[in-house]
Amino acid sequence: MDDLVTRSVCRLMVPFVQLYGAYLVFYGHLSPGGGFAGGAVIAASFILYALSFGQETASRRIAPGISHLMESGGGLLFVLAGLFGIMLGGTFLANKAAGFYMGIPGQLFSGGIIMILSFGVGIKVTSTMVTLYNSLSKRG
């Protein structure tokens, strides 16, 4: 799996795929997409990198320990953002009732905590897919 064409195409494609995934995650409350789809796109870029450059190079980019940490951290971020609603006097995942900044509808920084929740889901989905691929393709 040491092909020049594969590596060159992968090196060209991966930044654009990751940029599109980040766009899907951060604009999830305005346009189609969201945490799950964006996380899956980013994970596909990491898996593509691991396929064309080999497992060792890929695990230098995103180490298995960091991947595990991201997986726990994404879920924890979601739960903590939900608990903020209770702390500020609403229900779990309360958004406007808890007094978060709503912004102007249609702009990027609007909708309160929805962007934070999308970010948590995106991190968790990315690291879950990468961990799945790592544990499936590990030798021995």
């Binding site: 899907l24 189609p32 997409g33 969201g34 799950f36 789809a37 899956a40 796109v41 994970a43 596909a44 898996i47 593509l48 396929l51 897919m129 799945l132 691929y133 499936l136 393709s137």
Partner: peptide, 26 residues
């Protein structure tokens, strides 16, 4: 439903194929 289309294209075409190929190689 563009939302489902994006998820289908990313998961069904991308990640699932990679996982299946990894499983076949084992």
């Amino acid at each position: 439903s563009p939302d489902v289309a994006i998820t289908e294209a990313a998961l069904g075409t991308g990640v699932t194929t990679f996982l299946f190929i990894a499983a076949i190689s084992r």
